[in-house]
């Protein structure tokens, strides 16, 4: 049973259909990438999951239960546009947000202390939020999102505006939380991060989910059966007959084979020749390529 099940959800604003019959399942304990260009409807969908707004039709199930008012305390949401009360003290602010998520005063205090220690920022408690730099505020924002140990963590562009060091810091925390069993929705349009972090993805464009599955499955689905072979020696023509040459240099070749052709078969043939193989790789498309391909094809069909 998945932590989250989106079942045929729609949401319209005026004439604009922000979420158009979206369905997907999110496995428990996964890091789930929600991809899509700007304005695709990711934030609208997240707002439905976090009960900020309600779906016009369809249903959302959290841990098998229909979404209700007990669930916000089990989710942590870090919106893309972040903000804190500027005049509040950092510690008081975190206490406030933690208590609003249902923690008792005592629990809130000990958990905030844990995170302060972890980030080495014990002396920040009495500082005012406005005295902190943007990156520092981002850390506080992250703590406020995870302090109540949510089952489901929703991060909307969590690394935007962060320097590489802090990006890695937050990334490590995300992995650690995931190891401890937290399911994480990671919403972004930065594909390289998704490829690095996520196991599952759903691609949303113009309010619809156009693609979903594990990263490996999706890549396989979109592969062009390209192989790159690095070699020394002379590659005989008859080998190349069974495949189309895409690119050829003295030392390497990229070939496209028929979908049915077994890579083992190809390799076997190569090995029979007087050629020395250094490497044999299947070239899988990057998520970025898939993303652009998919988004552009939809853009074209919808313009017709």
């Amino acid at each position: 049973m998945g932590i989250l099940k989106i079942d045929d959800v729609t949401k319209t604003y005026g004439d604009y259909m922000a979420v158009n019959h979206v369905s997907f399942d999110m496995p428990e304990g996964s890091i789930f990438g929600m991809l899509g260009p700007n304005g695709a409807g990711k934030t609208s969908l997240i707002r439905i999951i976090t009960t900020i707004t309600r779906a016009d039709s369809g249903a959302v199930y959290f841990n098998g239960e229909k979404l209700n008012s007990t669930h916000p305390s089990q989710t942590g949401y870090m919106p893309e546009e972040r903000g804190l009360y500027k005049k509040m003290k950092v510690g008081d602010h975190l206490m406030y947000l933690a208590q609003l998520k249902g923690l008792s005063k005592k629990d809130a205090k000990s958990k905030i202390d844990y995170w302060f220690e972890k980030f080495g920022i014990e002396d920040w408690w009495p500082k005012k939020v406005e005295e902190l730099s943007k990156g520092m505020q981002q850390k506080i924002q992250f703590i406020s999102t995870v302090v109540h140990e949510p089952k489901l963590l929703i991060l909307d562009e969590p690394f935007s505006g962060l320097d590489p060091i802090n990006t890695n810091l937050i990334k490590d925390e995300i992995y650690e939380l995931n190891r401890k069993g937290t399911s994480i929705i990671f919403s972004t349009h930065r594909m390289e991060q998704v490829e690095e972090i996520c196991e599952h993805i759903v691609l949303i464009n113009k309010g619809k989910n156009v693609l979903q599955g594990t990263v490996a499955d999706v890549k396989n689905q979109f592969k062009d059966n390209l192989f790159k072979i690095e070699y020394t020696g002379i590659l005989p023509e008859n080998v190349l007959n069974m495949a189309k040459v895409i690119e050829k240099t003295d030392k390497s070749i990229i070939i496209k084979v028929d979908a049915e052709t077994d890579s083992n078969q190809l390799l076997q043939r190569l090995l029979q020749q007087e050629v020395f193989i250094h490497s044999f790789n299947e070239i899988l498309p990057s998520l970025n390529e898939i993303f652009i391909k998919k988004v552009e094809s939809i853009g074209m069909t919808s313009e017709e």
Binding site: I52, P72, Y77, P79, R82, G83, L84, S144
Partner: peptide, 15 residues
């Protein structure tokens, strides 16, 4: 202020 500082979205994911 809550709206322009964008704290409001964090708030209403809790209340």
């Amino acid at each position: 202020e809550e709206k322009t500082s964008r704290i409001v979205e964090v708030m209403i994911s809790s209340v």
